[in-house]
Write a protein that binds this DNA or RNA. Structure first.
Lengths: 254, 254
DNA sequence: GTCCGACGCTGCTGTAGGTAAGCGCATCCT
DNA sequence: AGGATGCGCTTACCTACAGCAGCGTCGGAC
């Protein structure tokens, strides 16, 4: 049996993890929630940048919680091109959706060196059974992820390159702020223009044009791995970005 | 208490509903699963074509199971344009995803006259608790829906107009075949070229050209509300469509 | 009847964004 | 030092698609 103060200490260390910070944005987590959470963190693993850690068609892979670094999930097309569906940042799940299917339907590639905790599906369900609030928070986070995919889809279908790029970078800013990396001013961004292009359905050359345009219009500067929002209000208006997303500080449900 | 043979009769009538047919494609449903299912069907409602039955920003709306007709979920953009995220056909949920959020993040519009069963979130969770297999099947169906949204996103990002249109119509064909409407040969399709355009991120005029092109190449005919696959193999190849999707007849998990 | 609105179809013109190619500047290797 | 290699940046040219305008057909309202 663990002594209460040791438990507390454990909860203290976990509370600043990106995953906990993200969930805490949806519901207020109790100490017991946090200790259950910390159990999920045990099997920490490290992956180098560039080598896929999940392939489409691969059967029965584990689920990870990203602790550090960036990854992306993408699909390959026969022409050799690819479409990046979403980027994962600290606090996000890797491969949660495809755990229900026996086979993954997309690839996941670490963009930087990545640290992630491997979670057994069984342990996760077990944790849900013990702490319903945690289950609610995770489901909520999953719904938010899906809503972001939908927003991405809308952008690809009906927004032009500039709006789309602005919207994307605003959204990344909001997500990073939520887990304590980055702020309203900007964020450190390890994405190359090629990655941006594959995510936004554009060519790398055109991404370059778009970034220059945004820079020259005094809206946003993306240089040397750093995104700076030069005119946040202007960007939000241009991209039709839901600003509530960027702003909320406390949990939505107490 | 219902007599066993009455129960059986009830299960017999429900088994041919689109919803049950769809779930049965994922897991084999027992008689008791089917009776639980039939309880969900009680509050049947009818909606006329064209008038939205859910608005983005609307709070605390119910969930429906579509029994007859077509609907679409879409998002409006400030320019007055819209992007259709997905079409719903018999057997599909309406508004399942946004039930976790307090407010819906998209609109749902009936394309034809629509019959749908209103389901209380509580009843649904109750049904899940009683029949885990049903819960599995529903989760599976939800995952499939999300996978389709992802595939739609990939199409918008990296497929040209012809491939995208072909892929879309193949997918609708596969979905309709699953619930017993339509076949490998084709299906009845109430979508106007304007709706197609809003879903595929194109203009209605260009959809028209694309459909003509597909027709002239002997691949597919879409005329008078009827889609006919003239050259299924050619279409599958052109669109890079996952044919396994179209083929499976029995449940994936027994 | 004839008016009117949906919807489908086509031709013309403009443009957003793709493709190809090349340069500069880092970093890494040998 | 010299050559790879990767990434950012730019220019010139080309195409897939949008926008607009117009015309035909069907079906419903009056």
């Amino acid at each position: 049996m663990v002594r209460p103060d040791a438990k507390r200490l454990c909860a203290m260390t976990i509370v600043n993890s990106p995953f906990a910070r993200k969930l805490a944005a949806f519901v207020t987590l109790s100490d017991s929630d946090l200790t259950v959470l910390s159990d999920l963190y045990r099997r920490r693993r490290v992956f180098p940048a560039g080598r896929d850690l999940m392939h489409q068609g691969q059967t029965s892979h584990p689920v990870y919680i990203l602790a550090d670094g960036w990854a992306c999930s993408y699909k390959l097309l026969p022409g050799g091109t690819r479409q990046i569906v979403d980027f994962q940042i600290p606090g996000d799940f890797l491969g949660l959706r495809s755990v229900l299917f026996r086979t993954a339907d997309h690839n996941i590639e670490p963009i930087t060196r990545v640290e992630a905790s491997e979670v057994m599906a069984h342990d996760l369900l077990d944790a849900f059974a013990r702490t319903p609030r945690l289950a609610t928070a995770v489901l909520w986070a999953a719904s938010r992820d899906e809503a972001m995919v939908v927003e991405h889809l809308v952008g690809l279908g009906r927004r032009n390159a500039v709006e789309r790029t602005a919207h994307f970078l605003l959204e990344m800013g909001a997500r990073l702020k939520l887990v304590g990396i980055g702020s309203k001013a900007g964020f450190a961004c390890p994405l190359s223009q090629y990655l941006l292009a594959d995510a936004l359905g554009l060519s790398a050359v055109h991404i370059n044009r778009v970034l220059r345009e945004l820079r020259e219009d005094g809206l946003l500067t993306f240089q040397h791995g750093q995104v700076v929002f030069d005119d946040l209000a202007g960007l939000v208006k241009l991209a039709d970005f839901d600003a509530a997303y960027l702003d909320h500080d406390g949990p939505l449900l107490r």
